[in-house]
Nucleic acid binder design. Structure first.
Lengths: 357, 357
DNA sequence: GTTAGCACTCTAGATTATCGAGTGCTAACA
DNA sequence: TGTTAGCACTCGATAATCTAGAGTGCTAAC
């Protein structure tokens, strides 16, 4: 990063304006344009001198001789870290969003779609989210529900409310009553234990319960291992409208691939989900930062949400490098906050919520 | 549709070849090319005469004077209905797919992703699927599971194994035991009933159960109403590689929008889900057929799967009009069959399946 | 340190020229 | 009547050329 001392206040201001202008127009910014548009009281020649300086520092670049300047990734980084005014969403927008989430508070399955819609709309980019996950899974409760014939639905509730379900097929039919007895035995033995502890108790159990327990163990391990399969995104169509993705076909293909195949995003998100990233802080990844080549053409704004050590997920937006970072960051922060509260309410329902229906 | 009598065998054969060639090359097909490539024992002039005839009938068209011919939608339709050799998948491919599904047979949540991967790969297009849905929902069983504090998970099992779940928050905490008693009462009252019947029994119930019942009713109605929110797709990235979507930016944008917004697909799929479309039959929709403008640039191959009147879903592929219909149809038919068997097994598990784990 | 003036560079877009693929037509032929 | 060789003609794609203007860097003056 460029030594901040080396930038005069005017240079910083120019960088700010160039970023703003570039974000708006998607094109290179000319010295003349800046002077005219922002009524600067210096001449374009002066601006050009400063621009040359900013280019020396690697904050700007010229696409070609005799074109205006475009911020580099380093320039964007500088902007995000030092120059950006931290916008918060307008009050009425906040209220509206909060209200939408309030209405969906008892419909867990709608949280992610709603959050994605909101994020995509506000940030004008694509939204990505993962469902909240517990970091360590403790057995809480298990239900066995006869669905049809020998098919039985196993519902596993983990401490913290994570829910897993799986179908199993018995070798011969059992009544719901018999299933309940088996479930009760398992619940008694396993309540509050983690996977390892349950494994050590398996020998004590009758054969049927042993089999089921084995299944439960794999489910618990899956929960701990996976942040992967739950990646959810929305807003690709809007994102592809951006000029940087309409020009070369390649850019858009890369983007679609990234969003569809998910592996790269999963890796980035997994990083965001490590405890070292505090819940509440927002992470900005600009142009892949040299580490994610596929993300070269885009930027991510990511945050964790939920309750640290209990249930956290990641959420964020994917946009062109030329993203409205201010909006994106405030959107991500706000939605992370709202979602976090919802998750919190499930853990610690407090007095103001009331019965559904 | 053109009167089949009006086509000579050679003209039909030429149409077949033109479709085949066009599907392969994505370009206009020249008379000369056909003669050379397929060693026809007529001259290119003769072929041109026939082509002119096929064009008169609306089966071919020239993108511009002095270009080769391209099949029209009508041409593709003719091809699909009369000329296409009904390919079945190679044995070993069938076995491989069946094996994959066999391994996933007890992991319901993997059925759709697996099916979509398989479909996309074989047909080299994007896959779309809906989860199996019951057409009429009968209450089977309900469980209330305390997850944390006053939060309770309601799991509703419908006749046929459809599963719905929802979180509800009580006004004050209840023990798992008390919840079970409430659930038992409801199970006794509601077992086997449909939504209307349950509604008529509500007055008999204590207040808490009334509230829960109300919730159950909306869930049942949702199940009946919705084929919508479960639309699942995969393979967009591959599809966008096709030359017809790389040329103009507009085509690809339309496609992405169709796949992302889903409303159009939902409408088409809903049509496929009406009982008039038999389970097992495959429907081919070419270029929107004039009714779906957004689908102008693509074709769909769709089928229902599952058990008629019990639980059926739709599945299919979306590709360019220039699609390998043979592959696509056989892939859709085969996967629909395999998925159907899985659904069937849940309903009527037979002797050969054994216990999981 | 700032600025006016100016020569210079490079791109985007328009214009034109050229090539060749592929057709339709005609006239001859079986 | 159906088939074929021959040929003129059309039209799109590609390349080559030109032009306008946007924007810079430099220099010299303030």
């Amino acid at each position: 990063m460029a030594d901040p001392q080396s930038l005069t206040p005017r240079q910083e201001h120019l960088l700010r304006l160039i970023v703003r202008e570039h974000v708006e127009t998607a094109g290179a910014v000319a010295s003349r344009t800046l002077v005219d548009r922002y009524r600067l009281d210096v001449s374009s020649a002066t601006v050009r001198n400063d621009m040359a300086r900013l280019e020396d520092l690697g904050l700007l670049l010229q696409p070609h001789t005799s074109a205006g300047r475009v911020p580099t990734e380093k320039g964007f980084r500088y902007f995000v870290e030092r120059l950006m005014e931290e916008a918060t969403l307008p009050q009425n927008e906040q209220r509206m969003i909060a209200h939408q989430f309030y209405q969906a508070r008892n419909h867990i399955e709608e949280w992610l779609p709603l959050a994605s819609t909101v994020l995509a709309r506000i940030s004008q980019a694509a939204a990505i989210l993962t469902a909240p996950r517990t970091t360590r899974s403790l057995f809480k409760h298990l239900e066995l529900i006869a669905t049809h014939g020998r098919a039985v639905l196993l519902v596993l509730v983990l401490e913290g409310g994570t829910l897993e379900q799986q179908m199993l097929v018995l070798s011969e039919p059992m009544t719901q009553g018999a299933l309940r007895e088996a479930a009760d035995r398992l619940n008694q033995v396993c309540a509050g234990l983690d996977a390892d502890q349950i494994a050590s108790r398996i020998p004590e159990l009758p054969p049927l319960e042993q089999n089921i327990c084995q299944l439960v163990l794999t489910m618990m391990h899956n929960v701990e291992g996976d942040t992967s399969d739950e990646l959810y995104y929305h807003g690709l169509a809007e994102l592809l409208q951006a000029p940087e993705f309409t020009g070369t076909e390649e850019a858009s293909t890369v983007l679609v691939r990234v969003l569809e195949e998910r592996s790269v995003l999963q890796a980035v998100v997994a990083e965001t989900l490590t405890p070292s990233v505090g819940v509440g802080s927002v992470r900005v990844l600009i142009g892949g930062e040299g580490r994610w080549d596929e993300l070269r053409t885009c930027s991510l704004v990511l945050a964790r949400y939920g309750i640290a050590d209990y249930a956290t997920g990641a959420l964020g937006v994917v946009g062109p490098i030329r993203m409205q970072y201010g909006r994106a960051i405030s959107a991500v922060r706000f939605v992370a906050g709202v979602l976090g509260e919802l998750v919190y309410d499930i853990y610690q329902p407090d007095a103001h919520s009331d019965i559904v229906a």
